[in-house]
Design a binder for these strands. Structure first.
Length: 216
DNA sequence: TTCACGATTCTA
DNA sequence: AGAATCGTGAAG
């Protein structure tokens, strides 16, 4: 429990990711978010944090994206300005946490699929549904701007990409655009979600380096 | 008002 | 491989 308590460095302003970071295509933001931290200040003042180890990009240009067709009340946030959380309910049970990216009036975002929690069983935040559950995030947090003031923010990557191998591969759990390689995860992390870890497509999983930020 | 389905997860 | 579970959008 105390392992979840504040690491004072997490709260320093200079490490907070600026809004400009999110003003880029989702497929550029997604890999860059690997290694960054999601931080939440809880009611009791304690700080909850976890290192992002798995992400997926979604964009209006492809049909798996919630904003690919209609603009509705439920996906409205995805069309809004970048730097907000887009949180929706899936399978009637789980909430999924996304970060809105790119620009206003353009639906795109990054799904946070897994976090590595400090200490204890880090697998608890493995998978988007459990991640949201662990951080107590739900529809009431939808459209919330990412900021310290709101008690929910993100901090910069703490490791060098050269030291930790990032894998790029296909997204999971979708029925459209299955072949788009818009999923990234930290190879070394035990927290990468289960269904995702069963990478039956090693041929399509490749090491990712910051230079190859190409789109599709 | 009804119906089919899903950016999931756990269990057998 | 299958079930659980329920809000939402589309259809009637």
């Amino acid at each position: 429990m105390s392992s979840h308590l504040i690491q004072s460095e997490s709260i320093q302003e200079n490490k907070v990711i600026p809004n400009s970071f999110f003003c880029r295509p989702a497929e550029e933001v997604a890999p860059d978010l690997i290694g960054c931290e999601l931080v939440k200040r809880q009611e009791n003042g304690n700080i909850l944090s976890g290192v992002i180890v798995e992400t997926e990009a979604y964009s209006q240009v492809e049909s798996a994206c919630h904003g690919s067709t209609r603009r509705s009340k439920s996906n409205e946030t995805l069309f809004g300005p970048p730097g907000h959380f887009y949180i929706y309910l899936t399978y009637g049970i789980y909430h999924c946490v996304n970060v809105v990216t790119d620009r206003d009036n353009w639906a795109s975002g990054v799904l946070l699929r897994a976090l590595a929690l400090p200490g204890e069983d880090e697998r608890i935040a493995s998978g988007p549904g459990l991640l949201a559950q662990r951080f107590g995030l739900n529809r009431t947090h939808d459209n919330l701007p990412i900021s310290i003031e709101n008690g929910l923010w993100m901090t910069n990557r703490t490791f060098s990409p050269a030291m930790q191998k990032i894998i790029r591969t296909k997204r999971v759990g979708i029925s459209q655009e299955k072949d788009l390689p818009w999923r990234w995860y930290l190879q070394s992390s035990r927290s990468v979600s289960k269904r995702a870890k069963g990478d039956r497509c090693p041929k399509t999983s490749v090491a990712w380096t910051p230079s190859q930020t190409d789109s599709r």
